[in-house]
Amino acid sequence: MSDRIFNFNAGPAVLPLEVLQEAQADFLNYKGTGMSITEISHRSKAYEEVNTQAEADTKELLGLGDDYRVLFLQGGASTQFAAIPMNFLPQGATADYILTGSWSEKALKEAQLLGNTHVAATTADGNYKRIPKMEEIKLSEKPAYVHLTSNNTIYGTEWQQFPTFGDAPLIADMSSDMLSRPFDATKFAMIYAGAQKNLGPAGVTLVILRQDMIERCPKNIPTMLRYDIHAKKDSLYNTPPAFSVYMVHLVLKWLKKNGGLTAMAERNQAKAKLVYDVIDAAPGFFSGHADKDSRSLMNVTFRLPSEDLEKQFVAEATAAGLGGLKGHRSVGGLRASIYNAMPQAGCQALADFMKEFQRKNG
């Protein structure tokens, strides 16, 4: 559509045009109900089918069986920062956190309010330019769980391979790279992701839990923070964010239609290469924040020789139909978020703009 820009915002972020068009067509009269998806009861058959299919599609894409549940909750990943220790950090135990950026720091901060914690590794001393090496990770004696953040939106780093720690339950915040590539989801006791970066609109948080973790949930914490309650009620304990879940359902369907996670990874690698190649070809003008072996396929972060040039870059890019390229305030510079729904044409347009901007200003 000629009036749409290429949206490089970090979140809320770009959604597949096909998904938006399907939602638009269904919005006033969902599946012959005579009502919008925003109006129908969450107890109705029409909505329950959406909810059930979204769980099934998530598990299919990740290769998970009946020993996992998929929940659709509210409060964003930030609420999970507290819910996780409330459910899985018993008194006297220790939870281990691997720090790779701002969001893992925030997860640790919430856990520190609720129990004993241990920083198993951190790359803060290098301004989070890289993911820690396995030999740098030092666990506590018997952690209740180990928490990591798979992709760091602000710093543009991403785990290339996930670690395993024996019997210690591994929990991951995958908000910004969820379903962007194949990985062994059975390594994880829990995965959670705010939808608004790579899955759908804001308002719903995807939580994937192994059944044995659900069975650990204590009975003496607030009901809305109990995973076992939400699992028992199939994410319908309270009124869910129906429209957001519906949109995630459409995105999951789109992912399956377009080849699943293997095809998405190939596409994402090709898109990221277009932008990183421009950065690497002009090291005196473009400077990538992340070390090459830790680079994210979802968030490309880079600087220019001066802040004035960076401001000029954002202004001219916006005028050229390339939106959302300003970097996060804690890092500065520029950031291109190129999630699953960003078409290759968008990354090609950005790469071409970068080359021309360097030619005029380098």
Rank of each mutant, 00 (worst) to 15 (best):
M134E: 14
P218H: 06
R303E: 09
K109F: 15
K233M: 15
A25T: 12
R335M: 14
M35A: 13
E60K: 08
T52Q: 09
I338Y: 03
W254I: 05
P201R: 12
T52I: 02
H42S: 15
D57M: 13
G194W: 03
E158Q: 14
Y339P: 04
C347Y: 02
V300R: 02
V70S: 00
F357M: 04
A349H: 02
G194Y: 00
G11F: 03
Q211R: 13
S150T: 14
I208M: 03
P241R: 09
A77E: 08
K45D: 09
E141W: 13
A341Q: 01
L199M: 13
H42Q: 11
L304R: 05
D173P: 08
L148K: 03
Q160C: 08
W254F: 12
L17K: 12
M342P: 00
N258V: 13
G321N: 00
L225V: 07
S2F: 10
P283R: 13
R267V: 10
V300A: 10
F357C: 04
Q344I: 15
A282V: 05
Q24Y: 12
V204Q: 05
T239P: 06
L274S: 12
V251G: 07
V119K: 13
A349N: 10
N299W: 04
N220R: 10
F357D: 01
T186C: 06
P132T: 06
T117Q: 07
K138L: 08
D291E: 15
A82W: 04
G92T: 12
M190R: 14
A120Q: 04
L113N: 15
V251A: 03
H328P: 01
Y97C: 10
N87I: 05
N198A: 10
K138Q: 14
Y145R: 03
L64E: 01
